[in-house]
C-alpha cells in the first residue's frame, strides 16, 4: 500500500467511525477531537481490517502511544511494509 492509499483509508475510517471530517495531520487527536482510548481500540480493529491480518500485542501497545494522524499513517505504513516483506519471503 502506498502512503496516499493508507491516508485515504485512515481518513475514511475517521469519518465513518468517529465522525471526524478531514482531521489535521499533526494535531493531537485527543485534544482536538476528543479521541480517547476507546476510539484508539476501535481504530486498531479497523487497521486490522485494512491490513487483512491481526495485530500482535506488541504492535497494539505501540499504537496506544500514537497522538496524531501522521503518526497513525506512519504506523500503518510500517506494518503494511513488514507484512509485505514477510509474504514475499514466504
Amino acid at each position: 500500500m502506498t502512503r496516499q492509499e493508507i491516508e485515504k483509508e485512515i481518513r475514511a475510517i475517521f469519518l465513518r467511525e468517529f465522525e471526524v471530517e478531514n482531521p489535521e495531520p499533526d494535531v493531537n487527536l485527543r485534544d482536538a477531537y476528543g479521541f480517547d482510548s476507546i476510539d484508539a481500540i476501535e481504530l486498531l480493529m479497523e487497521i486490522e481490517k485494512v491490513l487483512g491480518t491481526e495485530l500482535t500485542q506488541a504492535e497494539k501497545k505501540k499504537a496506544m502511544d500514537i497522538r496524531t494522524l501522521n503518526q497513525i499513517i506512519d504506523y500503518v505504513q510500517i506494518l503494511a511494509d513488514c507484512r509485505q516483506t514477510e509474504s514475499e519471503k514466504n
Binding site: 482510548s37 481500540i41 500485542q57 497494539k60 505501540k62 496506544m64 502511544d65
Partner: peptide
C-alpha cells in the same frame, strides 16, 4: 482511571 485505560496499559487490561 484514564491513566490505566490509556496507552499500552489499556492493551494489557484488554488481554
Amino acid at each position: 482511571s484514564p491513566t490505566e485505560m490509556y496507552g499500552p496499559a489499556m492493551i494489557n487490561h484488554l488481554e
